[in-house]
């Protein structure tokens, strides 16, 4: 299989304009994701996961290194990638439907067609009846589903998801996980998924990449060798628990080491 997305030695340094201090957030991240692969990134809070996702999307220019999509180096956002943001970031002055339309409008799709396409995705995330509501009228979980629909409607080849389900209650979260797997299997998308929840990462992914504490480095690739389609019963499987333990101790050791130094 050919790699869909490659990060080669990506470093990112934040610079404080006032003090001139520099903060290394990502340190030589290299990884490669195949077409149709579902990869998760886990790591301690503040280790640079969101930062890495922003670099992949092209929102932040890498300080050095490069992001390669389909063999071509990219440095700005494009329609082949779409982000589901960590905070839903819905535009508060737009209704649900208009929020989902937003990306289509940006690439110049006619309004009527955009609305039609958006409506399908509003329904898919189970929000029909709310298409004319404003974000403040929705619960956190509903907002997050709009956020997902807004990315999916663009039909991106690569879906970049930043803790999309963190704000959801346990039931909705599991429902959304299964839904996401269904969409992914149907539409043959490549997914880069960030989460804090180890069980979520294992349940969804073909491979889990563990980041070390700041500066973010790739600490280990953990392959999830569990057949698909998966059901929620999997979460009680001993293989699942073994993987969970392994990833947990990787992160834990790292956090301890960080705390000592």
């Amino acid at each position: 299989m050919n790699p869909k997305l490659v990060a080669r030695d990506v470093c990112l340094e934040y610079r404080q304009p006032r003090t001139g201090d520099r903060l290394l957030a990502l340190d030589r991240i290299s990884l490669s994701i195949n077409e149709g692969e579902f990869v998760s990134i886990v790591g301690p809070s503040g280790c640079g996961k969101t930062t890495f996702l922003s670099v992949v999307d092209g929102l932040l220019p890498a300080t050095s290194g490069e992001i390669i999509v389909d063999g071509l180096s990219v440095n700005k956002p494009g329609p082949d990638r779409a982000v589901v943001f960590q905070d839903a970031s819905l535009l508060p002055w737009r209704t649900v439907l208009k929020n989902v339309c937003y990306g289509l409008e940006c690439i110049g799709v006619r309004a009527s067609e955009a609305q039609e396409r958006a409506m399908r995705f509003v329904q898919m995330v189970g929000l029909d009846g709310f298409e004319n509501s404003y974000p403040y009228e929705l619960s956190g979980g509903m907002q997050q589903r709009v956020n997902l629909a807004r990315a999916l409607v663009m039909d991106p080849k690569i879906l970049l998801m930043d803790e999309p389900f963190a704000a959801l209650d346990a039931q909705t979260r599991e429902y959304m996980q299964e839904e996401l797997l269904r969409i992914w299997e149907q539409a043959n998308k490549t997914v880069l998924f960030i989460t804090h929840q180890i069980d979520e990462a294992i349940f969804l992914s073909d491979r889990v990449i563990v980041f070390s504490a700041r500066p973010g480095r790739v600490r280990e690739h953990v392959t999830v060798d569990i057949e698909r389609p998966r059901s929620l019963k999997l979460k009680r499987d001993p293989r699942f628990h073994a993987l969970e333990d392994r990833i947990w101790s990787l992160i834990h050791d790292d956090a301890l080491a960080q705390a000592r130094s």
Binding site: S54, D57, L59, K76, P77, G78, P79, A82, V83, F85, S89, L91, Y102, G103, C106, I107, M154
Partner: peptide, 8 residues
Amino acid sequence: RVAKSFGA
């Protein structure tokens, strides 16, 4: 950031 990400 949303606008930028969608290439507005």
